[in-house]
Design a protein around this nucleic acid. Structure first.
Length: 827
RNA sequence: GCGAAUGUGGCGGAAUUGGUAGACGCGCGGGACUUAGGAUCCCGUGCCGCAAGGCGUGUGGGUUCGAGUCCCACCUUUCGCACCA
């Protein structure tokens, strides 16, 4: 190497990165001082499921985004805690184990080893001394403990209920795990089954889960998703008296009173339009409604029975996608409490048992679905709301009228607006004991039982004498046994139920032989509290330490995928609220700030195994280094929107890091920063310092590249003062090479123990500005002028400039000067 | 169907409160250094045009001295919810 010219411009990432990986490990650079660290900052990322395929680029995209944020906060002087663990229980792991014929207890540890290897190479600032693995007894002991806390609060209960059953996964699913009638996991059409299940009363918390959303600094899309899911709607619960079919069947009476004899039952409906009750001409029950049997008259029995059988068997897909209305008349009638009219009771599958009361009053004139149904079955369609230009007799033009208007054909309420009508009609019906105003939520209780093997056993014992007995906390964990035959079957009973040696246990209360609960809990319970565990990892006497928790939580920033907007994120909020109410936490919202990241696609298409366009991080890290890979991932689009991964793009990022490396290597340690460059440097410090906390990583990188270009313009020799701050700014993105360069600059400690550079605002202002000159709104050029130039001076200068002046052909009608920016001469 | 986004060069994407559209990167063209270059460095690169100049942010209107940005209507794509009474 005799000549400066032939020295390589680039650095070898494999050497540099290996060197710093071991240095960080040796020096404990990523270890967080939980007990004494000042200005704690808890940067959380969603922990991955350790699949056999290894780390997905989407995982790495999310982790890197979080890592950059965390490293930046560290450079701001925070003690940052960035933990990561494994969400390894659950159906996904178990199904894969079944597929490859291995036991999950063997499979998961090897998957985790592989994940750990990949994660180590990614350059994350993760404190591995405080990790969690949800499948370890020292973790799920506390998951079971969480269950017991809910049980103690009366928020965990068991009931036989119609639940979603996935025939392929052979287990029940929570509502949140059913997507459009299919299993979110395997896509199989979900069936309804009637089974005994454990539920958490999350519905009790619906109003609070909804209200607190207003106070959270979360991505708006996530907040909106939760709001929709909780699904608040204001309306009324109304009661319709049923006329005894035996007494009144075949009666031709059109009008009856509520005092009439023979009333056997009442039907409760939920409606958001109590104002339209005068137009309710029939009732509809969901086919599986418990009253249907009782209401069906002998001559309708056959068709009703057949319809119910058909709709229970019919897959939910066709039921939810076909708009075609079907239904059957039960033969019974009820009394409309407003009109006193006798109205028929139908069953139809467009009414869902899961929502409201499973029954509706049908107002065909003012509800599209009811209209369609009434037309098909030739039921009366009266008008009770008149819109603009309509009156009580305006005919329907082939569609229901769902707009605003005034009530008509509604007795004493005629003429009231819809809003006022709702309130007055509800009050009137309440005075007649026919109903009351209620708020209804779409959110259902969370079904947590799973008839599977790979999860934490639910810590409950059933004793013939004592009944349902929770396992005492001192006897936790209830260890999941290693059984060879963990395959689920169609019976609706967990594989653990085949192991008497496991489930037979003395009753914790009386000591008599009893039977353990053989269901395990939903994976989402594991992840609903893991963030509470991280700072307290190592404490085996308690789930989370009060002092440490007070110091570190709520989580300062949580970054994750929006696919968990209604599952994990809602459950975590719920569990946190419950523990707060039990006096164990002094906050009720776990995540102060949440940001949803975008998705990575590849060459304009979604990545998928079948398309063969999946990015394997290992290959890219091998070829380009983790620093370039990380930086490229952040550069390809806005972090919160995701981006399009194209192989060609990564070279530009590597080139940038190479140039930086060369600039540092060749820099002049003694020279002062050149004025022009220094100004640019301070503008860059400002820009990057604002972009990074806003997660605008792509523009932050662009700004640093721009500065790099300015730095090298004219093949000049750079000064140390010009590159040193750039090394710090690059550090969150490319931590390995930044450490290397920091060391090359003579520092003995980690760049992450340095302080983020501070910009000098006085360098960002200058006395002269570039004034854009427009003539009649068209840009004709620009002038370098004094910042304080007046309108007249600017106009004169524009006239004097040859290329601009020629466009100013006459006397201007109007002249507009935007100080410091632009001059528009209107002719 | 409902709701939320989105639409800018050949491509990924930038653009304070309305104020130089296309930053940064890829790709492409030219040059330098080279036995060589898929390395590196320099210059150029929205479209049309020799030029002067004109035209350009999904489409059509509008507000304004001035619109990618604001308003109205429509279209595209994506995501979420999907008979929720």
């Amino acid at each position: 190497m005799t000549d400066f010219e032939i020295e390589p411009i680039g650095y070898d990432p494999s050497v540099v990165e290996a060197r710093w990986r071991s240095s960080w490990a040796e020096r404990g650079t990523h270890r967080t001082d939980i007990a004494n660290g000042e200005r704690p900052f808890y940067a959380l990322m969603m922990f991955p499921y350790p699949s056999a395929e290894g780390l997905h680029v989407g995982n790495l995209f999310a982790f890197t985004g979080c890592d950059i944020y965390a490293r930046f906060q560290r450079l701001q002087g925070h003690t940052v805690f960035e933990p990561l663990g494994y969400d390894a229980f659950g159906i996904h792991s178990e199904n894969f184990a079944l597929k490859v014929g291995k036991h999950p207890m063997d499979l998961i540890p090897s998957n985790i080893r592989n994940f750990r290897r990949q994660l180590d190479r990614a350059g994350l600032m993760v404190d591995w001394s405080r990790s969690v693995d949800t499948t370890q007894p020292d973790y799920y002991k506390w998951t079971q403990w969480v269950f017991l806390q809910l049980y103690k609060q009366g928020l965990a209960y068991k009931k036989a209920a119609a639940v979603n059953w996935c025939p392929s996964c052979k287990t029940v699913l929570a509502n949140e795990q059913v997507e459009g009638g299919t299993c979110e996991r395997c896509g199989t059409v979900v069936e309804q089954r009637f089974l005994e299940q454990w539920f958490f009363k999350i519905s009790d918390y619906a109003p609070r889960l909804l209200k607190n959303l207003e106070t959270l600094d979360w991505s708006p899309t996530t907040v909106q998703a939760q709001r929709n899911w909780i699904g608040k709607s204001e309306g009324a619960k109304l009661r319709f008296a049923v006329i005894d079919p035996l007494v009144d069947a075949g009666s031709s009476a059109v009008s009856v009173t509520t005092e009439m004899r023979g009333m056997t039952a009442q039907i409760e409906v939920f409606t958001t339009r109590p104002d339209t009750i005068f137009g309710a001409t029939y009732l509809v029950l969901a086919p599986e409604h418990p009253l249907v049997e009782q209401l069906t008259t002998p001559n309708q029995d056959g068709v009703v029975r057949e319809y119910r059988a058909r709709s229970s068997k019919q897959d939910l897909i066709s039921r939810k996608t076909t708009k075609e209305k079907t239904g059957e008349f039960t033969g019974s009638y009820a009394v409309n409490p407003a009109t006193g009219a006798m109205i028929p009771i139908w069953i139809a599958d467009y009414v869902l048992m899961e929502y409201g009361t499973g029954a509706i009053m049908a107002v065909p004139g003012h509800d599209e679905r009811d209209f369609e149904f009434a037309q098909k079955f030739d039921l009366p369609i009266p008008r009770v709301v008149a819109g603009e230009g309509q009156d009580a007799h305006t005919p329907f033009n082939g569609a229901a009228y769902v707009g605003d208007g005034v009530l008509v054909n509604s007795g004493e309420f005629d003429g009231l607006g819809v809003t006022e009508g709702k309130a007055k009609v509800t009050a009137w019906l309440a005075s007649k004991h026919a109903g009351e105003g209620v708020t209804n939520y779409r959110l259902h209780d969370w079904c947590i039982s799973r008839q599977r093997y790979w999860g934490p056993p639910i810590p409950i014992v059933y004793c013939d004498d004592c009944g349902t007995v929770p396992v005492p906390e001192s006897q936790l964990p209830v260890v999941l046994p290693n059984i060879p035959d963990f395959k689920p079957d169609d019976s609706g009973i967990s594989p653990l139920a085949r192991h008497e040696e496991w489930y037979r246990t003395p009753c914790p209360t009386c000591g008599k032989m009893a039977r353990r609960e053989t269901d395990v809990s939903d994976t989402f319970l594991d992840s609903a509290w893991y963030f509470l565990r991280y700072p307290s990892v190592g404490r085996d006497d308690i789930a989370f330490d009060a002092t440490i928790t007070k110091k570190w939580l709520p989580v300062t920033t949580y970054i994750g995928g929006n696919e968990h907007a209604v599952l994990h994120l809602l459950y975590s909020r719920f569990i946190t609220m419950v523990l707060h109410d039990a006096g164990m936490l002094d906050f009720e919202e776990p995540f102060a700030k949440f940001r949803a990241h975008g998705l990575i696609i590849r060459d304009g298409a979604k990545m998928s195994k079948s398309k063969g366009n999946v990015v394997n991080p290992d290959d890219y890290i091998e070829q380009w280094g983790a620093d370039s890979f990380r930086t490229y991932l952040m550069f390809l689009g806005p972090f919160e929107e995701g981006g399009d991964f194209r192989d060609a793009g990564i070279s530009g990022v590597k080139r940038f890091l190479d140039r930086l490396w060369a600039s540092v290597r060749d820099c002049d340690h003694a020279a002062a920063a050149e004025d022009e460059v220094n100004r640019k440097l301070h503008a860059t410090i400002k820009k990057v310092g604002e972009d990074v906390p806003a997660l605008s990583y792509n523009t932050a990188i662009a700004a640093m590249m721009e500065y790099m270009n300015a730095l090298r313009k004219g093949e000049r020799k750079t000064a140390r003062a010009e590159v040193e701050p750039l090394v710090q700014m690059v550090a969150p993105f490319a931590p390995h090479v930044a450490e290397e360069l920091w060391e090359m600059l003579g520092h003995k400690t980690s760049v992450f123990d340095s302080r983020w550079p501070v910009y000098d605002p006085s360098l960002l202002v200058s006395d002269t500005i570039e004034l854009v000159v427009q003539v009649s709104g068209k840009t004709r050029g620009k002038l370098v002028v004094s910042k304080t130039i007046t309108q007249d001076e600017a106009l004169a200068a524009a006239r004097a400039d040859a290329s601009i002046g020629k466009f100013i052909t006459g006397e201007p009608k109007k002249v507009i000067l935007v100080p410091g920016r632009l001059l528009n001469v209107v002719l």
